[in-house]
């Protein structure tokens, strides 16, 4: 195998089809960048999920004396009801921990969560605070049984599930990720077709050479490698372009996004490197595949 011969052939091929080569490089770059952004959103989402789902809990608020809620019927929860309810909640499968929050703790938490000078902060008294159960689940997605067990029980004022609240936010991120993936898939298909076309043009341009190579007994690898290498090199250059775009996306998009969450769940460089590695691998693989399939059809050996 003579490398310089193969590379001079590759160079000639790329130069002859310059416009097609550029089209391939751009399509691969944008397509792979979209794929990478999809992967990065994925990483970002799962990281934020880990962070937030660790903190989510179900709150079962209990009635107090002045509760205006209909479910309380104006009566405060009794000690027996509280005890029964705790036992009931603990019996639900999937419950990791049940913490009882008394009025004093609730008041303290309430005061901490508000800034000084807030009207509510001064107005609220310890007696106004509801007692509640804070329930941690082993799997935050499996909240239904707990909610069912608590709702409608005597002494229960209301049940709030934090998972449902942040769930909407994650659903939106999921949609974003799927959108990026769909665009990426469309572009990857476009890139594959373009590569196929470029290789076909190349094969047609050099049909004299390949005809003679066949005749004098050049091996299939020798005949096909220059064409495949053309695809691979175009794919690699496109991949580098995609990598640059992904780094820019990390710096300007994801780091900016993380700012809104006060530094919680910032996408690390390792995730970017992983996305770049995957997109490069997929890009080169698609280029090789598209070249081979085209050569099978247009370059009988």
């Amino acid at each position: 195998m003579r490398a310089n011969f193969i590379f001079s052939e590759v160079w000639i091929g790329l130069r002859r089809n310059l416009t097609m080569t550029l089209a391939v490089i751009l399509t691969v770059a944008v397509g792979m960048a979209m794929l990478g952004v999809g992967l990065m959103i994925n990483a970002q989402v799962s990281m934020m999920k880990d962070f937030w789902y660790d903190k989510v809990e179900i709150s079962v608020f209990l009635c107090n004396k002045n509760s205006a809620l209909e479910t309380c019927k104006g009566k405060a929860v009794t000690a027996q009801q509280t005890k029964d309810l705790e036992a009931r909640l603990k019996a639900v499968p999937g419950v990791e921990q049940v913490i009882f929050e008394d009025q004093a703790t609730a008041f303290r938490n309430f005061q901490e969560s508000l800034s000084n000078g807030n009207v509510l902060k001064q107005a609220a008294k310890v007696e106004d605070m509801p007692t509640s159960f804070r329930i941690k689940l082993t799997d935050p997605d499996n909240y239904q049984p707990v909610v069912q067990a608590a709702e409608g029980q005597p002494g229960v004022a209301s049940v709030t599930n934090q998972k449902e609240m942040i769930g909407n936010f994650f659903a939106m991120l999921d949609k974003l990720r799927y959108a990026a993936l769909i665009v990426a898939i469309a572009l990857v298909i476009a890139a594959a077709l373009l590569i196929g076309n470029t290789v076909r043009l190349s094969a047609y341009n050099r049909r004299r050479e390949t005809g003679i190579m066949r005749l004098v007994g050049a091996s299939n690898i020798y005949i096909q490698l220059p064409f495949v290498m053309e695809g691979v090199i175009a794919g690699l250059i496109g991949g580098v372009g995609a990598a640059v775009m992904l780094i820019l996306a990390k710096v300007f998009l994801f780091d900016g996004l993380a700012g809104y969450f006060a530094g919680r769940g910032t996408l690390g460089w390792d995730a970017v490197a992983e996305a770049i590695t995957y997109t490069m691998m997929i890009g080169v693989f698609i280029c090789v595949l598209a070249s081979f399939i085209t050569l099978r059809r247009y370059l009988r050996v």
């Binding site: 003579r2 011969f5 004299r208 050479e209 003679i212 004098v216 050049a218 091996s219 020798y222 005949i223």
Partner: peptide
């Protein structure tokens, strides 16, 4: 004939050996 028009006589003949990997 089927010669390569962009290669001279020597290169046309050498091409047959290059593509089967003969040493220079």
């Amino acid at each position: 004939f089927r010669l390569l028009p962009n290669k001279n006589v020597y290169e046309n003949v050498a091409f047959a050996l290059e593509v089967i990997g003969k040493p220079r």
